[in-house]
């Protein structure tokens, strides 16, 4: 495919898409406007909420690390404490406050693959 053919296909397909957007029915437009209003109502109720979504997760993680370190000091054989702590971390990481992390999961997986490719 040469450059000119590609540009032509891009132009035609975009024009077809734009036309389909403009041709959207009134009922769908109305439902989308309602969805937008719902989203903005959430903002009104919650406020801008600077950084607060991370506070509970941060506090839980800090408490977990502190508990882990304290257990290590107490333990006769520290190696036996490891798996328990990792399980706890999984439980915390599975919580709602970590859902932002989920949006980057694919990216993290991709970055890990790239790193492995670089090694191999």
């Amino acid at each position: 495919m040469n450059e000119e053919e590609m540009r032509e296909l891009e132009r035609k397909s975009r024009a077809a898409f734009d036309a389909s957007v403009e041709a959207g029915d009134a009922a769908t437009r109305s439902r989308l406007a309602r969805a937008r209003a719902t989203a903005l109502t959430e903002l009104r109720h919650r406020g801008l909420g600077r950084a607060t979504p991370w506070l509970p997760a941060g506090a839980a993680a800090a408490a977990l690390v502190a508990a882990f370190l304290w257990q290590r000091e107490e333990a006769v054989e520290p190696m036996t404490q490891g798996p328990v702590a990792y399980e706890d971390l999984d439980i915390v990481a599975g919580g709602e406050d970590f859902d932002l992390l989920g949006e980057d999961a694919d990216f993290v997986a991709w970055a890990a693959e790239q790193a492995l490719d670089g090694v191999g």
Binding site: A35, T38, A39, L40, E42, L43, P53, L100
Partner: peptide
């Protein structure tokens, strides 16, 4: 789309 709107506004 609605979920995406809510998450964008919320986060």
């Amino acid at each position: 789309v609605q979920d995406a709107m809510i998450r964008l506004v919320g986060h």
